[in-house]
Amino acid sequence: MDCLFCGIVDGTVPSHVVLDEPYVLGFLDTRPLFKGHVLLVPRIHVDTLPDLPAELVPVLMGAVQRMASGVVRALGSQGSFVAVNNVVSQSVPHLHVHVVPRTKGDGLRGFFWPRTKYASDDEAQEYAARLAAALDPPVAP
């Protein structure tokens, strides 16, 4: 398998490492939205968030939480944008979480897709029920 991010994890592809932990690696995006844009990846290869073993979700999200705070402290940003793409718009098929420093007036404008509305509260409730019924049961901590 030729996975760019697996190459970064194993050190065969150069990167600017920001976070190096047993289960998570963080490095600068080579095409950042803004300077300081970090990608956090699990060291194991999984394509998407649903593929990540449940026991690694809090590990990865804990690293994301720390990085979201870190960009504020290190770069003086006012906040951060955190995002995960699953398949669609995922340029590298290895789970990665974007942590992008944000400052009011930085030029990034909200979400990049059209918004819609539910026709009624009944339609919204129908969607909510369908989604709730499709969820896997929670895993005990």
Results as ranks from 00 to 15, higher is better:
V18S: 07
F34K: 12
V46N: 03
F111S: 10
L95C: 05
P42T: 03
P93V: 06
Y127F: 11
V99Y: 00
L19R: 15
C6N: 01
G36H: 12
A83D: 02
R66K: 15
A132L: 11
V139S: 06
K35G: 13
V57L: 09
P53M: 01
V17F: 03
G110W: 10
R109W: 06
V99W: 00
D2C: 13
V97N: 02
P114D: 05
R109P: 07
V71L: 02
L108E: 00
D2I: 15
D47L: 05
A63K: 06
S89I: 06
G105L: 00
Y23D: 14
V41I: 14
P101M: 06
V139Q: 06
V87H: 13
G107V: 00
P101N: 05
I44L: 12
V59D: 10
R43G: 01
V41H: 15
A128M: 12
H98K: 02
A133H: 13
G26H: 08
A119V: 04
G62C: 07
L28A: 15
G62K: 12
L49M: 10
R130V: 01
T116Q: 15
V92I: 11
V88N: 10
P42E: 04
L60M: 08
P22Q: 13
V24H: 10
V9S: 03
L49T: 03
L131S: 07
P141R: 08
D29C: 08
S120E: 00
V9R: 10
A140Q: 09
S89T: 08
A119I: 01
D136N: 06
P22Y: 07
A129V: 13
Q90V: 11
L4E: 05
H94T: 04
Y23S: 11
Q90S: 04
N86A: 05
R66C: 02
P53K: 02
T12P: 02
T103V: 13
Y127P: 00
E21R: 14
Y127D: 06
R31V: 12
D136C: 02
V97H: 01
P114C: 01
A140W: 01
L28R: 15
L40D: 03
D51Y: 04
I44K: 11
D121Q: 13
H98R: 04
M67E: 15
R73L: 14
V59P: 05
H98W: 10
I8C: 09
Q78S: 12
L25F: 11
T103G: 04
V17T: 13
P58I: 06
S80W: 06
R43D: 02
A68Y: 11
G62V: 07
M67W: 12
L60F: 08
A128E: 01
F27C: 05
S120D: 00
P101Y: 08
F34E: 04
